[in-house]
């Protein structure tokens, strides 16, 4: 975070090899480490939450059951009765992104969802799954979607490439949305944090003025908590919408 006299807002996203020479040889940076931590946190949350297996659940167990039901209902509403097959995928996707977003909000932690390589990999995985399911369900008719109905053949050379580009832009927009939101939030944290440090150099007046950026950062944290869950939700619901189109006959 900001400690230097100059503001280096993008320094927080830099990847460094961890674990000394072994990490260097394996190219093991913060990103895979935090992904493993996220998976561990989600698994621990589910395992220890459901362990009591009480008929009347306590708060912890109820939160696990509610998160299960939330994703289950969302998947079934969005995809339909075939949605149950994709529920584990959507559940894993949502909680992986959510854990990544929220762990990144803790001080001195790293946000892996702020790297487009990772969000794009998630988006491409979703997109590939949707294409495979489409081709499996619809066969070659899948390619007929690129020709809009009721359009004259003269316009086809223009409309088909546009339709294909619209289709191909899906994973890109999915990846950019999550990545841009996360980067923007963390850059703003850093800028306001750096303001506080800079104002501290101006004596009492600076101390009083520094209340502003601190208050803004507190408000920003509340906003980022909302954005974190909202972006995970948007990613999951869009994955559901793409899968709904794929399972439709």
């Amino acid at each position: 975070m900001a400690g230097e006299p100059s503001i280096n807002t993008f320094g927080q996203f830099e990847l460094h090899p961890l674990l000394g020479s072994i990490g260097k040889a394996l190219c093991f940076s913060q990103a895979p480490l935090y992904m493993m931590i996220s998976v561990g946190v989600v698994l621990a949350f589910l395992y220890y939450g459901i362990k009591p297996a009480a008929i009347v659940p306590g708060r912890f167990q109820a939160s696990v059951e509610m998160s299960y039901e939330f994703i289950h209902d969302m998947t079934m509403d969005a995809i339909g009765s075939d949605g149950i097959a994709y529920f584990p995928f959507i559940f894993a996707l949502f909680f992986f992104i959510l854990a990544g977003n929220y762990i990144g909000l803790l001080p001195y932690q790293y946000t892996f969802t702020s790297h487009i390589a990772i969000t794009f990999a998630l988006a491409v995985a979703t997109f590939t799954l949707a294409i495979v399911v489409s081709i499996k369900n619809q066969g070659l008719r899948f390619f007929a979607h690129f020709m809009p109905e009721g359009v004259s053949l003269f316009l086809a050379p223009l409309l088909v490439p546009i339709e294909i580009l619209t289709f191909l832009s899906r994973p890109v927009s999915l990846a950019i949305r999550l990545f841009a939101n996360m980067v923007a939030g963390h850059v703003m944290f850093d800028i306001f944090g750096a303001f506080v440090v800079m104002l501290a150099g101006f004596g009492v007046v600076g101390d009083v003025c520094a209340i502003g950026p601190v208050a803004l950062n507190v408000a920003l944290m509340a906003f980022e908590l909302l954005v974190g869950v909202l972006q995970a939700y948007v990613f999951a619901i869009l994955a559901c919408i793409y899968l709904r189109e794929a399972v439709a006959h």
Binding site: L165, L168, S169, V172, S173, A180
Partner: peptide, 13 residues
């Protein structure tokens, strides 16, 4: 927010 992302990503592709 989505409008901006959609336009940008299509252009990018």
């Amino acid at each position: 927010l989505q409008v901006g992302t959609e336009m940008f990503s299509a252009l990018l592709v």
